[in-house]
Design a protein around this nucleic acid. Structure first.
Length: 482
RNA sequence: GUCCCCAUCGUCCAGAGGCCUAGGACGUGGCCCUUUCAAGGCUAAAACACGGGUUCGAAUCCCGUUGGGGACGCCA
């Protein structure tokens, strides 16, 4: 394949949702795979809701995922501008061309009239498409309407016959032109509609492959007709199935977080999100699950995309995130969790300086136990703060046992006498003391864990003790011993 | 309602006529490791929607039914 040009063309809603992110990812992967160009075009022609801020939300999401675009906002390119709202003149020119060559015609029906007829038609027969009133106007009738200065829209004259195309993920699709109405391409206020804009822009931007959501399948025949009428080459289409919520309905806000940046805030890694999204509806044909971005780009093919919709599976996203967190280097991990430690008031610059070795040891202990980045703040609190919270049930079960206070006091003393306070010596001390006092080592361990971490679950106790240090262990043991 | 798309374990996928006693992953259960919790290893349960064809042979091809989704705007 020779240098394909693909595009991601979101309308700026203020944030990048997971469905859009996956579409963008597939486009990006396809471009990278074939040494093509990934274009970002903002479809901001919905005059109402479009601001720089909302565009920013989309760009942030793409940048976070690492989906860099070759042409588009902030990047430029030979086929700009990349904001659809700045291309309206071109859209109008295309509409004029289509009117001139007879592919489109002026329609003087008002939206109100259309709506009335549509409602009546739907009531009577369940369906209605534009009745082509204005397609059959005589020259006199047209002249009369022009004289009255009636507003006119431009409608595309849908030719009879079946429109066929070979979808790269669905295979051959055909739709009878008789079921498509003469759609408006230029509104009576002179503004283009979506159908016109996309086609005009895709033609001028020399897009070779349109990779977009499944929900656009029904627009495709209309657009193909437009390409043909304009004498332009028709690109290839690949319609990617939608992402559904657990209830099999199209994923939306009511299913929880849908914004990509929301996942970022929740402590997900962009590489985990990318890997997860890539495998949601796409398969390399092998059993490999974990992919670097380069591996994805190397393995990606459009025909690996499955035809059916995919349900978003949060548990699997968690798993990917955990896998990626486990594989992070200490340095990388440190920079990524710094924000959440700061937010929790647990950060100190010494962690990157004097206390780096200590800090890294803690991270390594926590790494296999974390699924989100913020877990380092919650699970690391016992190391990074003096005060800890005690789980009342744990205290009741392990610390209130008969004689335990005395055991702990004795242990505290034994610890004080230790030449070195490391995992091996604390363990030896605890076990021999348990032996001497006739306590099961396990119950003493459990009690110490609760005394020192406040919880019944923690990393290996003796590693924890070593990292906590003698003073802190003494302080926490002192609370319960004696 | 009309048109279009889709249909393998709970979920995401593999499977492109015999390799399928249907494979992997998440999740779930059990076991191992073990001071708890993870991680890791092993293991178990779990699916070809249904009905007709075609064929020596169908999860794979065709038709229908059912189910799910999407689209039917002078929104994008």
């Amino acid at each position: 394949m020779i240098s394909p040009r693909v595009r991601f063309a979101p309308s700026p809603t203020g944030y990048l949702h997971v469905g859009g992110a996956r579409t963008a990812l597939f486009n990006w992967l396809f471009a990278r795979r074939h040494g093509g160009v990934f274009v970002l075009r903002i479809e901001d022609t919905d005059t109402e809701r479009s601001s720089d801020e909302m565009v920013g939300g989309i760009l942030d999401g793409l940048r976070w995922l690492g989906l860099d675009w070759d042409e588009g906002p902030g990047k430029g390119g030979a086929y700009g501008p990349y904001f659809q709202s700045q291309r309206i003149d071109r859209h109008r020119a295309m509409a004029a061309q289509l009117v001139a060559n007879g592919s489109a015609y002026y329609c003087y029906c008002t939206p109100e009239e259309i709506k009335a007829r549509r409602d009546a038609g739907e009531k009577a027969s369940g369906g209605w498409i534009y009745d082509r009133t204005c397609a059959h106007l005589t020259a006199d009738e047209i002249a009369a309407r022009e004289r009255d200065k009636r507003p006119r829209a431009v409608r595309f004259r849908v030719p009879a016959g079946v429109v066929r195309f070979d979808d790269l993920v669905h295979g051959p699709i055909e739709i009878d032109g008789a079921t498509i109405e003469d759609f408006v391409i230029l509104r009576s206020d002179g503004n283009p509609t979506y159908q016109l804009s996309v086609v005009s822009d895709d033609v001028e931007m020399k897009i070779t492959h349109v990779v977009r959501g499944d929900d656009h399948i029904s627009n495709t025949p209309k657009q193909i007709l437009l390409y043909r009428a304009a004498g332009a080459g028709v690109p290839q289409f690949a319609h990617v199935p939608l992402i559904l919520g657990p209830d099999k309905k199209r994923l939306s806000k009511r299913h929880g977080a849908t914004s990509v940046m929301e996942y970022a805030r929740q402590g997900f890694l962009p590489e985990a999100m990318m890997n997860f999204l890539a495998l949601l509806g796409w398969s390399p044909g092998t059993n490999q699950e974990l992919f670097t971005r380069d591996e994805l780009a190397a393995a990606f093919t459009l025909d690996g995309i499955s035809g059916g919709n995919a349900v978003f599976n949060p548990e699997k996203l968690d798993w990917f995130n955990q896998q990626y967190i486990m594989r992070l280097s200490p340095d990388d991990l440190a920079t990524r969790i710094k924000p959440s430690l700061e937010a929790a008031g647990l950060w100190s610059d010494a962690y990157l300086g004097d206390r780096r070795a200590w800090f890294v040891a803690i991270l390594e202990l926590l790494q296999p136990r974390a699924t989100r980045l913020d877990d380092f703040a919650s699970q690391g609190r016992l190391f990074f703060a003096d005060a800890i919270d005690y789980d009342p049930a744990a205290v009741e079960k392990h610390l209130r046992a008969d004689g335990m206070a005395a055991h702990l006091a004795a242990l505290d003393q034994a610890f004080a006498a230790l030449p070195a306070f490391d995992a091996a010596s604390t363990e030896a001390a605890l076990r021999s003391l348990a032996d001497a006092r006739g306590v099961k080592a396990a119950s003493l361990i459990h009690a110490v864990r609760v005394a020192v971490t406040g919880k019944t679950a923690s990393p290996g106790l003796f590693e924890v003790l070593a990292l906590l240090g003698r003073e802190r262990v003494h302080a926490r043991l002192g609370k319960w011993g004696g």
